[in-house]
Design a protein around this nucleic acid. Structure first.
Lengths: 350, 350
DNA sequence: CTGAAAGCGCTAACAT
DNA sequence: ATGTTAGCGCTTTCAG
């Protein structure tokens, strides 16, 4: 590998001068400049980023910690983050823990070891807030992304999206269409990460006088298969549902599949709506109505916030940035119920 | 940030000893060892990876260069690569060029500047083999991944998958089902990356005496929309096709959508088959039959090959690793034609 | 078994 | 305008 001194020697100058030329630090005569540039070109010199990082006290790298290979949302989001990070001159290191705590620890240690200047951690059920707080106390900038409840901030810098509101929007949409017998598939355990979306949905229904009976709520894994299973359990209960809200797009896709397996037309027999707006949502037939998260904005905010954490003094109250509200995206998987209670009637069942 | 000397001071030893303890270089008394370990723990010390990389002459990082945010195959593949790289003790830097040559250059320069120890480049139409060869000549390990034609290796180390064979398998499958009036949607320009799959498909048809007339071949972008457009053009030609081969899953999904828009039942009216087996293929209704690429193996081979390039002397003939052959995955999007030429008849049209 | 010293490639004062 | 010097945090001979 060509080094600075080799270039310097080739150009008949000293290392400092070459450095100055390369960093445009002025203070260099035009003629020398040319000679240096020519030598750089001729030798194919590329500055050693490690050395530079060491002396400057910072690698030009941000890390993104994601948990799961299975959830297509993360790659989609990662690319948004990469874009935003690049604009600020950072490289993005994608750290995929695959839900393995040991792997997560290993990555956090590496980041603590200046592998990256800071880390954006995707919020998920399993994140260890304590471990992240430790890391932050040790001086490593940490940003939690996709915190779901702006009203109750975590003890860490975070980007929050109001997902209670997402539940509200989904409920309002279904109510407006005339649905009254609605089911819910919740991704994850009760009390898990999706609880705010769920609560927003349930509260809105209740306020409309259409409170959801417990039998119409099923929990399942936050995956396509989990959604399908939960939907089968839900629909087998047979209370003549005309619509299903899934707390995430992945399980919503599972609901779509379950509907197909039960020969239910979507949206004719059953309307389905999810949350997030992953690419897959658009690609389903029928395309999935959903409440879109502002992912691009969240990614940008996360990167900005991490940057300001990097610049900030180590000890300060963890700031929070809130994205714009999620917004309803109506596609073809929701419509007015074909007839009230076609699958059991409004006044049968329960 | 805590440094080695601080730990050393805290433990009443010198930096070298701490280093020895941490690297398990023996030569350390048990009692000292404990004292050091305790100090490390107490101070929350993490070795600075940049410094280590600098002195060792290598960052523990591999880079993966991908071109497109839009193609879901890349994220899927990236996570496989990350996994394989991690097993060898590397971090993975995902470099997304977004098809911007300037961005690609910037990344390659950074990698040349020891940002990563080597780079895996996804083969795509636009890759500049020259630029990569330059990089390699400058001593940066480069591996080209997903080269589609093992019989004609590129001038770079590569992982090849025999995609001619993929075309053969798709053709054999359709022929075996009894299809004779078959259409093709090719992702990308004629002469582009997909030419081998296409040729394998066409050759096989021809050998079976069912050569494909030019009117039954359409080119389009290697995307869902591109596939849908091409399928519309193809099916509007109206030669009573009973099956369509798309050279990639993404356009195959587009064909599925076009079929739905034309009220064609899949597979009853039209069988559809793709190539790759991305996750989306499983998730379509009906799930897409396809010729699966050995992506996990390809990712592992690419990482291994890059490792051996890192170890190897800089000048040697570029090696090639060939994966196992692609394999047919039959799902519900292909079946025997319902009736020969239901959409025009075997002897009408043309 | 432990310490001292040199140096990885680069940058940033400070001198000249 | 250019050169000299010192060090970033770590590893690694080589002495003690």
């Amino acid at each position: 590998m060509t080094t600075l001194v080799e270039v310097a020697r080739a150009a008949g100058v000293t290392a400092a001068t070459v450095s100055n030329v390369l960093r445009n630090r002025g203070k260099v005569g035009e003629e020398t400049r040319q000679r240096v540039l020519e030598a750089v070109e001729r030798l194919g010199y590329r500055p050693n980023l490690m050395a530079r990082a060491l002396v400057e006290g910072k690698p030009h790298t941000m890390a993104l910690l994601v948990s799961s290979i299975a959830n297509p949302f993360y790659p989609e989001f990662a690319l948004e983050v990469e874009r935003a990070a690049r604009k600020l001159g950072y490289f993005l290191l994608v750290c995929n823990t695959n839900e393995d705590p040991a792997q997560e620890r290993a990555y956090l240690d590496a980041i603590g070891g200046a592998l990256a200047q800071g880390v954006i951690v995707m919020n998920a059920d399993f994140v260890q807030l304590d471990a992240l707080q430790d890391l932050r106390r040790r001086g490593v900038p940490v940003v939690l992304c996709m915190w779901e409840r702006p009203q109750e901030p975590p003890p860490l810098p975070c980007v929050a999206v109001d997902l209670y509101q997402a539940g509200v929007l989904a409920a309002e949409h279904l109510l407006r269409l005339g649905h009254r017998r609605i089911g819910v598939v919740c991704g994850g355990e009760p009390g898990g990460n999706h609880r705010w979306r769920l609560r927003g949905f349930l509260d809105t229904l209740e306020q409309a006088g259409a409170a959801l009976p417990p039998s119409c709520l099923r929990h399942g894994h936050d995956t396509i298969d989990g959604g399908r299973d939960a939907a089968h359990r839900l629909l087998a209960g047979g209370p003549g549902l005309t619509a299903v809200f899934a707390t995430n797009d992945l399980p919503a896709v599972g609901v779509l599949q379950a509907a197909a397996e039960l020969s239910l037309q979507v949206p004719g027999d059953l309307s389905v709506i999810g949350v997030t707006d992953i690419q897959l949502a658009r690609q389903m037939r029928p395309p999935l109505s959903t409440v879109a998260m502002p992912t691009t904005e969240a990614a940008a905010l996360a990167v900005q916030l991490l940057q300001s954490e990097i610049d900030a003094s180590p000890d300060h109250v963890p700031p929070m940035r809130v994205t714009e509200a999620p917004r309803l995206v109506v596609r073809a998987s929701t419509s007015a119920p074909r007839r009230e209670g076609i699958l059991g009637g409004a006044d049968s069942g329960d």
